[in-house]
């Protein structure tokens, strides 16, 4: 992959992660298992969509082709998305939704804290703003993983099944590639792999309390962050997310 526009690729990765997870969480709106959970999921989605706007509007400026945050969100196809695969797989149930968010939050909080020291001022500003929200998200998703894992036999069984499904998708967040190398050399961000010790510590401490067993294998699916091979689920998600702009180009209200 060309690294000549590494900053644009990097910004898409940040924005698409927030956008795709934000959209997945928004699918729960009105369907949460309890009112408080419904509100929490929608609020988290709102934070993520807000962060998406900051990342993608900057991405559009860096690209210099006149694309706005809305153009990037609504008018790109699946293979142009740069989100990690973990974030695009279907919600399935509340347990899997929460565990997925926890895997992401456990990465995102130390990641954003590291980005606060970015050589790119805009990146540092967006990270500082988003980190405050991410710390709330992690607090809640970790607590909820524990409540469900150390809950009833049924909730533990569902979390165990969610873990088996999601685990092979988690590692992609922390696998470096040539875009990451170029970005690290420019001082914009550290290598994602440097977040692994912090991520491991959060996962291990939470799993212990949640009575969940960390799988031995560290096999990680790849193909989301570079857009080479998304799962079939992303296209379905985008079909729903983008239908209005695709059917009525330029619609605004």
């Amino acid at each position: 992959m060309a690294t000549d526009n590494a900053l644009f690729e990097f910004l898409l990765r940040q924005g698409d992660n927030s956008l795709v997870l934000g959209h997945r969480l928004s699918e729960w709106c009105g369907m949460g298992p309890a009112l408080e959970e419904d509100i929490a999921l929608a609020n988290t989605a709102l934070d993520l969509i807000g962060q998406t706007r900051l990342w993608l509007s900057y991405a559009g400026e860096v690209e210099g082709a006149g694309r706005s945050e809305d153009d990037l969100a609504y008018l790109r196809d699946a293979y142009d998305f740069r989100n990690a695969l973990l974030l695009e797989v279907p919600n399935e149930d509340f347990g899997r939704t929460i565990l997925r968010e926890f895997f992401f939050d456990a990465f995102q909080l130390p990641w954003l804290h590291a980005l606060i020291d970015s050589a790119d001022e805009r990146v540092a500003e967006i990270a500082a703003k988003s980190a405050k929200e991410a710390s709330y998200h992690l607090e809640r998703s970790a607590e909820t993983v524990i409540a469900l894992g150390d809950g009833t036999d049924e909730s533990n069984a569902k979390m165990t099944a969610a873990l088996a499904y999601l685990w092979p998708f988690a590692g992609e967040l922390m696998v470096d590639d040539e875009v990451d190398n170029a970005i690290a050399e420019a001082g914009v961000a550290p290598l994602p792999s440097t977040i692994k010790p912090a991520w491991n510590a959060t996962i291990n401490a939470t799993f212990k309390e949640a009575l969940l067993t960390r799988p031995d294998s560290d096999f990680a699916h790849a193909g989301g962050r570079n857009g080479f091979r998304h799962t079939e689920h992303l296209g379905h998600m985008l079909a729903q997310m983008q239908v209005l702009q695709r059917s009525h180009p330029g619609a605004a209200w």
């Binding site: 408080e36 959970e37 509100i39 929490a40 609020n43 988290t44 709102l46 709330y136 607090e139 809640r140």
Partner: peptide
Amino acid sequence: KVSQFGSTACKAQ
């Protein structure tokens, strides 16, 4: 605390 999130982004219940 009932929930970390409330009726708007800035509030908890």
